[in-house]
Design a protein around this nucleic acid. Structure first.
Lengths: 144, 144
DNA sequence: CTTCAATTGTTGAATATTCAATATTTTCAA
DNA sequence: TTGAAAATATTGAATATTCAACAATTGAAG
C-alpha cells in the first residue's frame, strides 16, 4: 500500500516529471544550435514519412493540444518547413506535409538528437536504457 | 549505435515526455477535485516538513523556474496556504512555510495522489512500478 | 431528403510562462 | 574597510498556452 506521507521524490508522477524535465532540457540545448524547439523537431520527424497527417493525428503524435499545434504550425508554414493541404476525402481535415526545406532541417536535427541518445547510452548504460524504454512503453500501454 | 531514422517513438526523450504527459494528466484530473494544480500540491508537500524552504530550494524541488514559482506562491499566499518569512541569517532569502490551512489541504491532496499511485500499481503491476522508479532515479542521478 | 449531432480545425480572450532587467544582500579580495 | 562580483528573489514586457466559442463539414437517424 502506498503511504500518503511518502516524500514527493518517491511518487512515480514526480520521478517522471523530473526525468522528463532533465532529458528534455538537454535535448533542447542541442536543438537550440539550429534554433528549433523540441516540439518542432517532433513535428518534422512525424511528417518526414512523406505522408499527409491531419492536425488531430499530429497533435496526438507530438503531444500538443490542438490550438497550440495550430499556432506552431502557423510559424512553421511561415518558415516554409511544412505546408497545409485540404483533405479531398474529408474537407473538415487539413493534411500537413513536410517541405524539402523541412526535410533538410530534419536531417540535421535528427543527428543532434542521436548525439544526445548516444550521450545517454554512454553515461547511463545500454542495458538500463533499453530496459527503461521497455518499461515506459508498457506503462503508456497500460494507461489506455 | 542509435539510428537517426528511427521513429520518434523509439527516442527516450519522447517516451519520457509521453509517459509524463499521461500520468500527469491523470493526477491533474484527481487533484482538480480540490481545484489545485499539480505544482501547488508539490509545493505543499515539500513544505509539509514544517521547515522553512528558500525560493531557490523550492524551485528546484518542485521543478519550476524561479519567476513562475514566485507568481504561483503569490497566489498561494493570497489563499493563505503558505506564507513568506525573511531569512534572518541571509536577508536575500525568503523562507516559505506551510500554514495550518495548507496542511489540511495537503492531507486531502496526498490521499488523492495515493489513490492514483494505487491505481497505477493495479494496472501496471507492483514489480514494474518499483523497477521503473529505480531506473528513473538512476537516470536522474547519471544526468548530473 | 432533412435535420441535428458529432467531428475537425481555428480564433480571440484570458491566463500562464519566460526572458531580461532590477533591487537587495552577502561574499570576498584588495 | 571598501568596492566589485555573486547570490537571491521579484518585476514587467514579451511570448506562449489554454479555454471556450465558433465555423465548416460530415454522419446518421428519422
Amino acid at each position: 500500500m502506498a503511504k500518503s506521507n511518502a516524500p514527493i521524490t518517491e511518487h512515480l508522477a514526480y520521478l517522471l516529471a523530473q526525468a522528463n524535465r532533465e532529458i528534455n532540457r538537454q535535448l533542447e540545448l542541442r536543438l537550440s544550435k539550429e534554433g528549433v524547439p523540441v516540439e518542432q523537431w517532433r513535428i518534422l520527424k512525424v511528417l518526414s514519412d512523406g505522408d499527409g497527417h491531419s492536425m488531430g493525428e499530429l497533435a496526438d503524435a507530438v503531444l500538443l493540444n490542438h490550438p497550440t499545434l495550430t499556432k506552431m504550425i502557423d510559424r512553421m508554414v511561415s518558415d516554409t518547413l511544412v505546408y497545409r493541404v485540404q483533405d479531398p476525402n474529408d474537407r473538415r481535415k487539413v493534411l500537413m506535409f513536410i517541405s524539402d526545406r523541412g526535410k533538410v532541417l530534419c536531417k540535421r536535427l535528427n543527428s543532434l538528437a542521436v548525439d544526445q541518445e548516444e550521450h545517454i547510452l554512454e553515461s547511463y548504460g545500454d542495458k538500463s536504457t533499453s530496459e527503461l524504454k521497455r518499461l515506459l512503453e508498457s506503462l503508456i500501454d497500460s494507461s489506455n
